[in-house]
Design a protein around this nucleic acid. Structure first.
Length: 259
DNA sequence: ATGGTAGACCTTCTA
């Protein structure tokens, strides 16, 4: 089963690019982040025409996540548990139906900038809610994948110029500690078990020629439960997508699990 | 010293 994550930065602005990539990469399951539209504005027809079932958790203007699947799926939740007052659409989870099913959670973790504001507190609180939810999922002892835009630079080697990020929410010690607390519940980062080389980035800012200078960071991950890690086969980071027409500032990351 | 770009949408916010 091929499972992709991609922060598309508006699915409607990116539609031709998204369709071209789906046709070329042929993922079975795709988690989109920052679809930036309400459910009714999601471009269902052209994506369904490629053979995908679609589940969305949209929001006007900002955020918004979706799961596409060529296999049958059932939505388990829209929104992350732990705060009923949270109105931001950043999490969707589905069970992918297959002889060996996989639970897939697609997430768009808050950016958290600027760090001296409530936005950073929201980021850390969201991280803690995700950690608690992952703790609950682990008790099921099943294959699951939590993938998406984690908005965290885990280690200095995950940035071309780590010192450029010292004042940024993505590289704060608290953000990195929150990511470790999640991962060290017993999850595997596909980037690590797939032995991807240092310098495998997933995001380059639109500004200041970041792409041309390879001023990138790795912030889009697949975290795997032990049962999913046992099925892990390979990982590909689709760097070429950053050179497409009207690119997203993120590129897709794709993993293969044994069926 | 604090730019530079992109998207939604209406003027500024978010990233």
């Amino acid at each position: 089963m091929r499972i992709a994550t991609w922060n598309v930065n508006s699915v409607n602005a990116r539609l031709p690019t998204v369709l071209a990539w789906l046709e070329a990469a042929q993922p079975d399951v795709v988690c989109f982040q920052e679809i930036k539209c309400v459910d009714e504005k999601f471009p269902r027809e052209p994506i369904e025409a490629l053979g995908y079932n679609i589940e969305t958790h949209g929001q006007k203007t900002y955020n918004g996540v979706a799961i596409l699947s060529k296999l049958p799926m059932s939505v388990e939740r829209r929104g992350l548990p732990g705060d009923d007052t949270d109105e931001q659409a950043r999490y969707i989870e589905a069970l992918i139906e297959a002889p060996r099913p996989v639970r897939v959670g697609g997430l768009y973790l808050p950016n958290g900038n600027p760090i001296a504001t409530e936005k950073f507190a929201y980021k850390l609180a969201w991280f803690e809610r995700l950690r608690r939810h992952a703790t609950d999922l682990l008790t099921l002892e099943e294959s699951f994948v939590l993938c998406g835009d984690y908005n965290v630079i885990p280690m200095p080697e995950d940035a071309k110029n780590p010192t450029a990020w010292t004042g940024d929410a993505l590289f704060q010690p608290e953000s990195r500690a929150a990511f470790r607390a999640l991962k060290y519940l017993g999850l595997a980062d596909a980037h690590e078990i797939g032995n991807e080389p240092a310098g495998t980035y997933t995001f380059w800012d639109y500004q200041a020629g970041a792409w041309q200078r390879d001023h990138g960071i790795r912030i889009d991950f697949h975290l795997l439960s032990p049962q999913a890690a046992d099925r892990f086969q390979s990982i590909e980071t689709h760097r070429d997508a950053r050179d497409m027409e009207k690119p997203s500032d993120h590129v897709p990351v794709v993993i293969d699990l044994a069926d």
